[in-house]
């Protein structure tokens, strides 16, 4: 199974490196939302300090949703999904391959959006970058696990990508609560230990939804 996952992952990343379609659209949307939120909130230092964590996660989740909605549509449009499904391997390998690939792309978007946020909102991070990595990573993994599963579902419906956020956001709410909470504590300069309940919630969510994805994915991609 390990090799199947790596092959799929490598294939997806190579396609993405050649077209850069998903990465570019996600990046541009992330920057646009940063600008819009900046315009909407104004430059007040106190407001920015209070809203920083929320701003970051709104940017990450919306940008990620835009990218994730394409992940399975692209395969369907080019008729590749049938090929992958015919390959003699476990269906859960497809889920993991897609999930890891999308997580890498979204983490790249975050790596660009975070410095832009610092500049646009005049919000220097100082020494908080290190502790910030853990909530960012855990939150992204949980969110992407949910979105990967629902992306495969919504791609099969008439509404296509429009349905993805409607299905995924409510289910991913615990991950968002944990991620926003933990990020806010780190940005407030509190030690990472103070965010233990949030981080525990995130770890539980990540484990549960990766496991759920592995189990139910075979039912999602039965036909085609």
């Amino acid at each position: 199974m390990g090799r199947a996952i790596l092959t799929l992952l490598w294939k997806d990343l190579r396609v993405e490196l050649r077209t850069k379609e998903i990465l570019t659209t996600m990046m541009v949307l992330a920057l646009l939302i940063l600008v819009i939120l900046n315009v909407a909130m104004g430059q007040n230092v106190v407001t920015v300090k209070l809203a920083a964590s929320g701003v970051l996660w709104v940017v990450f989740t919306f940008a990620a949703t835009l990218g994730l909605s394409r992940v399975f549509l692209v395969e369907k449009e080019r008729g590749q999904l049938s090929g992958i499904l015919l390959a003699p391997m476990d269906r859960s390998a497809i889920f993991l391959g897609k999930m890891i690939g999308s997580t890498i792309l979204v983490l790249l978007v975050e790596a660009v959006a975070l410095p832009v946020f610092v500049v646009l909102f005049n919000f220097p991070l100082g020494g908080r970058v290190g502790p910030l990595l853990l909530p960012l990573f855990l939150g992204t993994v949980g969110f992407i696990a949910v979105e990967t599963l629902f992306s495969a579902i919504s791609a099969q419906t008439r509404l296509r990508e429009i349905l993805l956020p409607l299905l995924a956001f409510p289910v991913a709410m615990p991950a968002l609560v944990g991620a926003v909470g933990a990020t806010a504590k780190v940005l407030d300069g509190l030690p990472l230990q103070s965010a233990a309940p949030e981080l525990q919630l995130l770890v539980a969510f990540d484990i549960l939804f990766v496991a759920i994805g592995l189990v139910v994915f075979e039912y999602v991609v039965e036909e085609e």
Partner: peptide, 14 residues
């Protein structure tokens, strides 16, 4: 929200 999504999915699933 989750179950409204469930009903929307049913309406759109073909």
């Amino acid at each position: 929200f989750i179950y409204v999504g469930y009903l929307l999915l049913r309406a759109a699933a073909g």
